[in-house]
Computed example of a mutant assay.
Amino acid sequence: MTDYRRFYIPGSTWFYTVNLAERRDNNLLVERIDLLREAFRYVKRRRPFTMEAIIVMPDHLHCIWTLPPGDADYSTRWSLIKSRFSRALPAGERVSASRAKRRERGVWQRRFWAHLLISQDDFNAHFDYIHWNPVKHGYVQKVAEWPYSSFHRFVALGIYPINWGHSGRFGIRPTEYPE
């Protein structure tokens, strides 16, 4: 078994990728977006963090969080989000023998990917990547067409123009566009 080692830095900002266990032809996260939102709200009330950006795709999600000063425990937060969401679903997904032995559901991949954001450029690149993701995966032609995204909040705040992320413009920071 692979020996994963995570490091924890209080108050840091992280980019995450979290996947469903069965990704092929699975639309669970957008079909049950209400349950996913509730799971995030539940955990944020108990273990606060700042959600900097998020994209929810049918079978995975990406987000950026900043943890509170003195707090580095993102793993517990993810465990709580995943378990809260899973418990709200009716059983029926495929469960592997190893998961059944541990009495686990088969909703999420056990692990998640975490990347410490170390600079503003690193943050900006991941921020753009999050919002570009539905275009990258071919779900929409324009970033603004995907409803399960923090992109719309950043348009309202004037950070992104509404037409960002189409016509080959990905990779250019929104502030570089002419008005």
Rank of each mutant, 00 (worst) to 15 (best):
S98I: 14
P90R: 13
R84C: 15
M57Y: 04
R102W: 03
R87K: 14
L116T: 03
R84D: 02
H60I: 09
N124P: 01
F85I: 08
M57I: 05
W65S: 03
W108P: 02
V107S: 04
C63I: 08
W65Y: 06
V107A: 03
P68G: 00
G92M: 08
L116E: 03
S79L: 08
Y74V: 00
P58A: 04
P69T: 07
H62I: 05
R110V: 10
R94C: 10
D122V: 02
V95K: 11
I64T: 04
L80Q: 05
T66D: 09
D71I: 00
A97Y: 13
S98M: 07
W65P: 04
L61R: 04
G92N: 06
T66V: 09
F85D: 11
D122P: 07
M57S: 14
L61I: 10
F112K: 01
T76E: 06
R94N: 13
D73C: 01
S96D: 08
R110D: 15
A100F: 05
A72G: 15
D122Q: 06
H115G: 06
T66C: 06
D121V: 04
R111M: 06
D71R: 00
P90W: 10
W78S: 04
L80N: 03
F112D: 05
I118Y: 06
G92A: 10
F123A: 07
G70T: 09
W78F: 12
H60A: 10
R94H: 12
T66H: 10
Q109R: 12
W113I: 05
V95R: 14
S86P: 02
N124Y: 10
V107L: 09
L116S: 04
A91W: 07
D121E: 14
S119N: 04
D71F: 02
Q109S: 11
F112I: 03
R105W: 11
W78V: 02
C63W: 15
R77C: 00
D59T: 06
S86W: 00
P90V: 12
L117N: 03
Q120T: 12
S83T: 10
S75P: 15
S79Y: 13
D59G: 02
H60N: 07
P58S: 06
A91K: 15
Q120D: 13
R103Y: 10
D122C: 08
W113D: 08
R99G: 11
E104W: 11
L80C: 09
T66P: 03
R105K: 12
R102N: 12
A72E: 12
W113L: 05
S79A: 14
L116V: 09
V95L: 13
L67P: 04
F85Q: 01
Y74Q: 00
A100C: 02
L89M: 13
L67R: 00
V95G: 12
R87V: 12
K101I: 06
A91E: 15
R94Y: 14
G106H: 07
F123P: 02
R111P: 02
H62S: 04
A72M: 05
P68F: 01
L61D: 07
Q109I: 11
A125R: 11
C63P: 03
I81D: 03
R99M: 07
P69A: 10
P58I: 03
K82R: 05
L89V: 01
G70Q: 12
V95I: 15
A91D: 12
R87A: 08
